[in-house]
């Protein structure tokens, strides 16, 4: 790695992840990260690879918060 990559290490990837716990819903997660439960579809769309239905999430799933 060259000095020009510093600060911050090698990766340019900045993300936030949430691990689903019992009682979570996308609306609840949306409220936690965005302050607004109605934005839950943003999380659903960002996780279409692991979610088929916005009303169905499983404990232990790791969801990317866009």
């Amino acid at each position: 790695m060259s000095e020009s990559d510093k600060p911050g290490g090698d990766s340019w990837k900045f993300e936030q992840w949430h691990e689903v716990v019992a009682g979570d819903t996308l609306s609840k997660i949306s409220k936690q990260y965005y302050g607004d439960a109605s934005l839950y579809m943003k999380i659903f769309e960002a996780n279409r690879n692991v979610l088929k239905d916005p009303d169905v999430i499983k404990v232990g799933q790791k969801l990317r918060i866009p």
Partner: peptide, 22 residues
């Protein structure tokens, strides 16, 4: 830089639509 700033912009755009903030 674009990769990093795209992630930032995405979050800023979502938060700009939020009625309340976290």
């Amino acid at each position: 830089i674009p990769q990093m700033m795209d992630a930032v912009k995405s979050r800023l755009d979502i938060l700009s639509k939020a009625k309340k903030l976290p």
